[in-house]
Design a protein around this nucleic acid. Structure first.
Length: 969
RNA sequence: GGGCGAAUAGCUCAGCGGAAGAGCGUCGCCCUUACAAGGCGGUGGUCGCAGGUUCGAACCCUGCUUCGCCCACCA
């Protein structure tokens, strides 16, 4: 090797990435100036939870955002990408309280609110920057000086302002309603934070004895002989809080019992049998066809029962407390029991009393807290609510008017459906880490809502007021994020410039949690939608379509993909993180799923993979798949390495000057014109694809151009012109030619780097910095100009010519391969073509075929000449025959069957086209160009078939020439 | 129960009115001086089923089947 290459054969991201990361940050390239006169383009990063680390879903969404931001920045927009972190109140509680329990065996109530908050802040200071570091690692060009936290001073101000205004507007109110109670974290959670799943349970039948029945009047025991009404329940323990038994008013079976009392077992209480006919959720209730048709009613602990109690007027008896234990109005025996224990006790006591009927296994829908996994207890409590309907109306109208659109478009329906069926949003939480509700309670019963701590009750003037203990749902502050980050409620330059944002990119899983709330808050408080487009990403799953999770051992950590991790490291991590599952089983799963660990592939490969694999729906991600794009990065690296090894003596300014004149352009060879034309093609495709958020198309276009066109064809064809030798050195013409080829290669690569930079910023910056370029360019690729289409470089003639040459070369390779001719061995071929146009092309560029297929080609117009005995033959297009004399090598039988197969294929095509063109309706109604195209195809296929048939006839006639060749199978 | 999707090569997915595509896999041949994380070639599909619209359907419409996802308080 003559070149002492400074570049390693394999691309090493670990060496390259840190350098450019530092360089970009130190130069402040990510920072946008709100006062810039250029057109703004803004995206707000969905703030990750402070508890978390960057997972694969973040990595995907953030990568797509960075692609958009870098692309727009290079296009000259004032691109601003707002970073931030969310305080994630309940998640922090779960984390810290678990830790508190483990280390000190204490609950948050043991240490108190102030101490808990002190610890939470200390913890936030310690781990809050971890995510930002990880974001930097992946090269995200976030505007760091703007970074925000949902509990920083400015965010707090915005939250209070929003609360007070919504309260003033009558959109925030206090009400006692049925809520979802999470007994583990002792707080309310919203409907969205409850996961309902069918779990195995039982359906118990219980007999409630009728008071004053035919026999044993008033007796609780000896129920077998008393008249009784049977109810069915999945929750026997709630019996202790029953205040009625309901039957349908028109249910004849129970007509005689209307108004009678039953003895509520185990309680000594008597409750009425009420006749009811109400509509619950659009259905008549109770349903006489279900179970016995009689329903026990527990208004305090069942949403339906509560609703009924309000409609019919029944007392409400709370027998379960905030810790999920039975409480006072329940008989003393059960007080203090956990719900599950009380259930067993009640069932046992009922059985003992002879009041238990049939028991069967039953699938019960059970709600669990998303965060703690605890079974949700429906409870009646006074809470703060946001009146959702008026806010939702504005959001619906804005979407209908196209002020915000969704990509993919069908997500619009999901959004609209939810918005038009929206329920009030419970926003108070009985937690500490979060924004305390700016409301003060007075003994007089009045509540004062204020921006600043008030000195006295606004109603009675008493100074003895106490701030509400509750905090706000995390999503309340998140809903303000697109404008609170820009300085709202102040009228700032930031807001004027960057609100509304152009795009929001997030996962479909938080469409309701977050997107919906931002739309409502933005429209109400800012009067404008928060973003023009909502792009919803795919969901990442493992190869089998299962959601990635730590407890399942199928997750891929994006940072492992960047740095690499051995399987032992993956397993060790399980011991550190201790997810709440069987650790040994998990370790085995991880060893099975990642036998080789995760190879280090670099941020660029991961980012490119995300773009390329991002289709609507879900991405089944695996290490192997990312590896493919790692290989692609390496391919690009090596192509560049090759170029750099052969660019000595290249003068970019001279080349640029040459291209600026018509004569200079004319001096380009056909392959040069072809690759520059293809380059135009890919530039146009990438730009169009990104405009439409078709990241996979954009990445695919780059992939295909670089690998299949630039590397496989252009570089191969350029090689003979690039290699330097003493001979070349003394030949002025060849020198000039070399310089042109160098220029085209360098230009193609340089443009490709700009085109690909948003996807894979590190490797492209590294290569770009090394490429020779004209002077006066910026010091970094990321602030150069994104390639713009230039139609003057589109060259259909060159593309058509190359296509023919490629087809002929591929056919030559195929024949060589079929007959066992080594790729390295050159062989004679004769190209026979009658039509002047293709002949002219072949004549001018025989060298291209010779180079690409490693053959020695001759050209002939005489298609009628006899072929040498033992020749293999192929036909390209309609009339380019490739004759490869193989002497004794050819296996006549194999060759005949191969050609016969080709003929069969042609026959099929011809039959189809004949049918089409024989159809008068087709000729009459199809557009002319389509008809002409089909005619052309038919002619080509017929010509091709003829040539193949001739070849077959020749073979059959001279079949004796066949030798004992090592033929094809 | 309601809503929204999806069924195309062995696998994962593009294509969404005018010649069935890609990557991976598989089968061969090559360590050819950028790259074996590579090169070259081959194999592989009545585009879920049944109707309809159209000159023409993988693509539009209807029904069916099978899978996903989201929403939903039947005791």
């Amino acid at each position: 090797m003559t070149t002492s290459s400074a570049l390693p054969k394999q691309y090493d991201p670990s060496e390259v990435e840190p350098r450019w990361r530092r360089f970009w940050l130190e130069n402040g390239f990510f920072h946008a100036d709100e006062a810039s006169p250029t057109v703004p383009y803004a995206i707000t990063l969905p703030p990750p939870n402070v508890t978390g680390s960057l997972h694969i879903g973040h990595a995907l969404g953030f990568t797509l955002q960075d692609i958009l931001i870098r692309w727009k920045r290079m296009q000259g927009f004032n691109a601003m990408w707002m970073p931030g972190i969310d305080h994630a109140s309940i998640a922090v509680h779960v984390l810290l309280e678990k830790d508190l329990q483990r280390r000190e065996h204490k609950t948050r109530f043991d240490i108190g609110r102030d101490e808990f908050m002190r610890r939470a802040w200390a913890w936030k200071e310690r781990s809050g920057s971890r995510i930002s570091e990880q974001e930097k690692l992946l090269g995200f060009s976030l505007d760091w000086p703007r970074e925000r936290f949902t509990m920083d001073d400015r965010a707090n101000r915005a939250v209070i302002e929003a609360f007070v205004r919504l309260h003033e507007d009558g959109l925030i109110f206090r009400a006692k309603r049925m809520i979802n109670w999470d007994p583990a974290s002792e707080t309310v959670v919203s409907d969205l934070e409850v996961d309902i799943a069918e779990e195995n349970g039982s359906l118990w039948e219980i007999r409630y004895p009728i008071v004053g029945g035919a026999s044993a009047a008033g007796a609780i025991v000896g129920g077998a002989s008393s008249e009784a009404i049977t109810v069915a329940t999945t929750r026997p323990e709630t019996l202790l809080g029953d205040t009625a038994v309901a039957v349908h008013a028109r249910d004849e079976r129970y007509r005689h019992l209307h108004g009678k009392l039953v003895e509520l077992p185990l309680t000594g209480r008597q409750i009425p049998i009420v006749a009811v006919d109400v509509m619950i959720d659009g259905k008549s209730w109770p349903d006489p066809a279900f179970g016995s048709g009689a329903v026990k009613v527990t208004p305090a602990h069942d949403p339906t029962d509560y609703e009924v109690s309000q409609l019919v007027g029944l007392p409400i008896l709370q027998v379960i407390d905030a810790q999920g234990r039975m409480c006072d109005p329940a008989p003393a025996k059960y007080v203090g029991m956990a719900v599950e224990d009380a259930r067993k006790a009640v069932v046992a006591d009922l059985e003992a009393a002879g009041l238990l009927g049939a028991v069967k296994d039953y699938k019960v829908p059970r709600g669990r807290s998303q965060r703690t996994g605890a079974v949700i207890e429906p409870m009646l409590m006074e809470q703060w609510w946001v009146k959702a309907a008026p806010l939702a109306e504005k959001a619906v109208a804005a979407v209908e008017q196209g002020k915000t659109k969704f990509v993919p478009e069908h997500e619009t329906k999901t959004f609209m459906h939810w918005m038009t069926h929206i329920k009030d949003w419970c926003i108070s939480r009985q937690l500490w880490w979060g924004h305390r509700i700016p409301a003060w309670h007075c003994a007089c019963g009045a509540i004062t809502v204020a921006r600043e701590t008030p000195a006295a009750c606004s109603t009675c003037g008493s100074a003895a007021i106490m701030q509400d203990e509750d905090i706000l749902d995390t999503w309340f502050s998140s809903g303000l994020w697109p404008f609170s980050t820009l300085g709202w409620p102040d009228k700032t330059r930031d807001l004027a410039t960057f609100y509304p944002n152009n795009v929001l990119v997030t996962g479909p899983d938080i469409l309701f949690f977050w997107v919906a709330r931002m739309m409502m808050m933005g429209l109400h408080l800012m009067g404008k939608v928060p973003f023009r487009t909502v792009y919803l990403t795919s969901i990442i799953t493992d190869e089998n379509g299962a959601k990635m999770s730590k407890t399942k051992g199928n997750g891929i950590d994006p940072l492992d993909v960047v740095h690499g991790a051995t399987v032992d490291q993956l397993v060790e991590r399980i011991d550190i993180e201790k997810p709440p599952v069987d650790l040994d089983a998990l370790k085995r799963t991880v060893r099975k799923n990642f036998p080789k660990g995760v190879p280090a592939m670099g941020a660029d490969a991961l980012r490119f993979a995300f773009a390329a694999l991002n289709t609507t729906g879900r991405i089944r991600l695996s290490v192997d798949r990312v590896e493919k794009y790692r290989n692609f990065i390496n391919k690009l690296w090596n192509a560049s390495r090759f170029a750099l090894m052969n660019l000595d003596g290249y003068d970019p300014e001279r080349f640029e000057a040459q291209l600026s004149t018509p004569a200079g352009r004319a001096s380009l060879g056909m392959p040069e014109r072809w690759i520059l034309s293809r380059l135009q093609g890919v530039v146009g495709q990438v730009d169009a694809a990104l405009e439409a958020f078709r990241f996979n198309d954009a990445a695919g276009a780059i992939f295909h151009f670089v690998w299949d066109e630039l590397c496989d064809w252009y570089i191969e064809l350029a090689k003979p012109h690039l290699y330097m030798s003493a001979e070349v050195e003394q030949d002025a013409a060849r020198n000039a030619r070399r310089h042109v080829v160098q220029g085209v290669l360098a230009t193609a690569l340089e443009t490709t780097m700009r085109l690909m930079h948003p996807f894979s910023p590190f490797v492209t910056e590294e290569i770009w910095q090394k490429l020779p370029k004209p002077p006066q360019l910026p010091g970094s690729l990321m602030i150069t100009v994104f390639p713009r289409g230039d139609a003057s470089w589109v060259d259909p003639a060159a593309e058509a010519e190359m296509q023919l040459l490629q087809e002929v070369a591929v056919a030559c390779r195929m024949l060589k391969q079929t007959y066992g001719v080594s790729p390295a061995q050159s062989i004679d071929v004769e190209l026979r073509v009658a039509s002047p146009a293709p002949r002219a092309i072949l004549e001018h560029h025989l060298g291209v075929i010779e180079r690409a297929a490693k053959v020695a080609a001759t050209l002939s117009a005489d298609t009628a000449a006899a072929t040498p005995a033992g020749s293999a033959k192929a036909v390209v297009g309609g009339d380019v025959e490739i004759v490869m004399p193989l002497g004794g090598l050819i296996d006549v039988a194999a060759e005949k069957s191969r050609i016969a197969k080709d003929i069969a294929k042609a026959d099929k095509e011809i039959a189809m086209l004949d049918k089409k063109l024989g159809n008068a309706d087709f000729l009459a109604r199809a557009p002319e160009d389509v008809v002409a195209e089909q005619r052309g195809r038919l002619a080509e296929e017929q010509s091709r078939r003829q040539r193949l048939a001739d070849a077959l006839a020749t073979l059959s006639a001279g079949g004796a020439a066949g030798g004992a060749a090592k033929g094809a199978s």
